[in-house]
Design a protein around this nucleic acid. Structure first.
Lengths: 130, 130
DNA sequence: CCGGATCCTGGTCGATACTG
DNA sequence: CAGTATCGACCAGGATCCGG
């Protein structure tokens, strides 16, 4: 017997109740800078660094986008923000446990890319050859 | 001794040579519909279905976006497209091995969301309360 | 040093209408 | 049925300037 497809809303990704959350997460870390910030922070001593430091670590990012992306990550509990009342101002960001815990799952993708990306590139070349 | 940071280009995500590829992949599956299509196809018999079938499975998607997303996935070697010269036209799409192989790594994210998403939500509420 | 305020541009996506 | 064509809204993100 063929099982009838239950109506799944676009939020039910994977038929999973957290589908919407999954899509949100992918959208977030799929944006232009988030993943770079997370990785950059993860490589700093104590997974911690100040604004200008992160800025220098990530070539091409503008101050605006750095601020914005950090805010989003802070809002999501991935990083903390600590302001030191000095002159000149100093602000330090640090990866939270939550943020660090994302590095694990990410490794799955990294491995996949390592083993399969060449296939994707070949597929593209073949496809574009038309 | 403190190890001096090598200049890493924005393409060197994770200090990994495939960094650009990783970002590309995340951007692709982080877009609005790709992940839904992959999952939808993976649940069909033989990971295969026709255009209208997929369309009905994914509420809210427009014909335009369905076509576009399928094209992208086809170009990346994630799905195949087979046209049957009949009237009315029939076109079937099928997940490739490559496409299926992505489901594994994805599971890591799914699990992460399952165990950690509530933390994200709590962080957001706390943050927004200002 | 950090980051807010503005302005602007290109790209993504939805709506709609039309074809082989 | 399975698309293509066209238009327009919206928004991510870049450039730039200013301010505590």
């Amino acid at each position: 017997m063929t099982k009838k497809n239950k109506n799944l809303s676009p939020e039910d990704v994977c038929g999973h109740k957290d589908g919407a959350a999954i899509r949100e997460l992918l959208t977030r870390i799929g944006d232009k800078w988030s993943i770079l910030l997370i990785v950059a922070l993860s490589k700093m001593p104590k997974q911690r660094g100040r604004f200008s430091e992160i800025d220098r670590t990530i070539p091409g990012i503008t101050q605006r986008m750095l601020t914005l992306t950090l805010r989003n990550l802070e809002r999501d509990g991935m990083v903390t923000r600590e302001v030191f009342p000095e002159v000149p101002p100093r602000v330090e960001y640090q990866l939270t446990n939550l943020g660090q815990s994302l590095l694990g799952p990410m490794q799955g993708f990294v491995d996949w890319v390592g083993s399969r990306w060449s296939d994707v590139r070949k597929a593209r070349e073949k496809f574009d050859k038309r």
